[in-house]
Simulated assay, not measured.
Amino acid sequence: MELSNTLKIHRATHNLTQADLAMEVGVSRKTINTVENGKFIPSTVLALKIASVLNVTVEEIFYLK
């Protein structure tokens, strides 16, 4: 199984750029980019921060494929 995500969709729904979201959760834009592209698996803390900013559950963004 591999971790997949719908981060880009949720981010776009909130009209946030990668840089906007990165600033909100305290990481670099590159980190958000690599998470969206499945090249980096976020820590639990980062996943929770992202979900909180996007007002969804972690499970709505990240799932096993």
Rank of each mutant, 00 (worst) to 15 (best):
E2C: 00
E2Y: 08
L3R: 01
L3F: 10
S4Y: 11
S4I: 02
S4G: 11
N5M: 05
N5F: 09
N5T: 00
T6M: 08
T6D: 06
L7M: 03
K8R: 14
I9Y: 13
I9T: 12
I9N: 07
H10D: 04
H10E: 09
H10M: 08
H10F: 11
H10L: 14
R11G: 03
R11M: 09
T13G: 10
T13F: 10
T13S: 14
H14N: 11
H14L: 03
N15Y: 11
L16M: 13
T17F: 12
T17I: 10
Q18S: 10
Q18N: 11
Q18Y: 09
A19H: 12
D20N: 15
D20T: 12
D20H: 15
D20A: 12
L21V: 04
A22M: 11
M23V: 08
M23Y: 12
M23F: 10
E24H: 13
E24M: 14
E24I: 00
E24F: 13
V25Q: 02
G26L: 08
G26H: 03
V27S: 07
V27P: 09
V27D: 09
V27Y: 07
R29E: 12
R29Y: 00
K30H: 12
T31N: 10
T31R: 06
I32W: 07
I32E: 01
I32S: 07
N33G: 09
T34K: 09
T34V: 09
E36P: 06
N37R: 14
N37W: 06
N37C: 12
N37Y: 06
G38Y: 05
G38H: 02
G38M: 03
G38V: 00
K39A: 09
F40D: 04
I41F: 11
I41P: 00
P42G: 04
P42T: 04
S43W: 08
S43Q: 14
S43V: 13
S43Y: 06
S43K: 11
T44L: 03
T44P: 02
V45F: 09
V45C: 05
V45W: 05
V45S: 13
L46E: 08
L46T: 14
L46Y: 08
A47I: 07
A47N: 03
L48N: 06
L48G: 05
L48Y: 05
L48D: 00
L48C: 10
K49P: 01
I50C: 05
A51K: 10
A51H: 09
A51S: 13
S52N: 14
S52R: 13
S52Y: 12
V53E: 02
L54C: 03
L54Y: 00
L54V: 08
N55Y: 06
N55F: 01
N55V: 05
V56F: 04
V56L: 06
V56H: 04
T57C: 04
T57E: 01
T57N: 13
V58K: 13
E59I: 05
E59L: 09
I61Q: 02
I61M: 03
I61P: 02
I61A: 03
I61V: 03
F62T: 02
F62L: 07
Y63N: 07
L64M: 10
L64Q: 06
K65N: 01
K65Q: 00
